[in-house]
């Protein structure tokens, strides 16, 4: 698997888009730090961007790569290599190269501006961990869609829809249910609804670590009580792992039945 991962990774690292993505974060990091001049404020702004962007880029790149690497895949399929190895290798190659762009692109400017000496190091770390998880999750989901649909346009459409659903529509439904069931105690519901969407979960995890959590008021206190504890943190990371694991499992399952 490592060899496949290596080749996919090199293939991507050499492609123009990885550089664009990397330089985007690099410029973003420097620009934010230059404008805000404080690491902590930059972290808040970055959160908004990461929460929206990493899933979207993960989705688009994931679908694009799996479609464009079809020849490579067919070439590999005729070689004495296990199927799951091929697909998991490709998946990890793309997820890792995107994560690397994110971590290096943001890491370099923040390192230069002294994030290691700053108390924000943990928040910044959490930001990168969430961003990486979101990348892994959405690349995996996109891979599944690309595997299930031969038609590129269709696959692309479904992938974008899934992203749109998770990033926007889900929160809309969440909001509507909160407003409609106003009369009932909603703490548990909010907590569960947040946990079920990795984008919301990452957003809340980061929000709670920042000063801005005070705005969350009473509801925030309930969340803080849960996420603030070790159990809460481990539960969240566990859920993010499940979110990563399930689509990966399906990559394995779908790819083992697919004809080429």
């Amino acid at each position: 698997m490592f060899k496949i991962l290596q080749y996919s990774f090199y293939d991507l690292v050499r492609s123009r888009w990885s550089y664009v993505y990397f330089f985007f974060y690099l410029v973003l990091g420097f620009a934010l730090l230059f404008l805000n001049s404080s690491v902590s404020k930059s972290v808040i702004t970055l959160m908004n961007i990461i929460i929206v962007l990493t899933p979207m880029i993960g989705t688009i790149f994931g679908v694009m790569y799996f479609y464009s690497a079809r020849e490579f895949t067919e070439l590999l399929l005729a070689q004495p290599i296990k199927r799951s190895t091929i697909f998991l290798g490709q998946y990890l190659g793309i997820a890792l190269s995107l994560t690397l762009s994110l971590v290096l692109g943001l890491g370099v400017p923040f390192m230069i501006y002294g994030v290691f000496q700053s108390s924000e190091i943990w928040n910044f770390g959490l930001l990168l961990v969430s961003g990486s998880f979101l990348t892994f999750i959405f690349v995996a989901i996109a891979s599944n869609i690309a595997l299930m649909h031969e038609n590129k346009i269709k696959g692309f459409g479904y992938a974008i829809f899934i992203w749109l659903f998770m990033a926007v529509i889900y929160d809309g439904l969440f909001l509507i249910s909160l407003v409609v069931f106003d009369e009932y105690p909603l703490d548990k519901f909010s907590l569960i609804a947040t946990m079920l969407n990795p984008i919301d979960l990452s957003r809340i995890l980061i929000l709670l670590k920042l000063d801005i959590s005070a705005l969350l008021g009473y509801t925030g206190a309930v969340f803080q009580k849960f996420f603030g504890t070790n159990t809460g943190l481990f539960a969240s990371i566990g859920i993010l792992m499940v979110w990563t694991g399930i689509p990966i499992f399906f990559i394995k399952k779908i790819s083992s039945k697919k004809d080429f």
Binding site: D11, E71, F72, E74, L75
Partner: peptide, 13 residues
């Protein structure tokens, strides 16, 4: 050994 019908390879290599 296998020779596929249409020779398609990763274009970046």
């Amino acid at each position: 050994n296998y020779l596929p019908q249409i020779a398609q390879f990763p274009e970046n290599l």
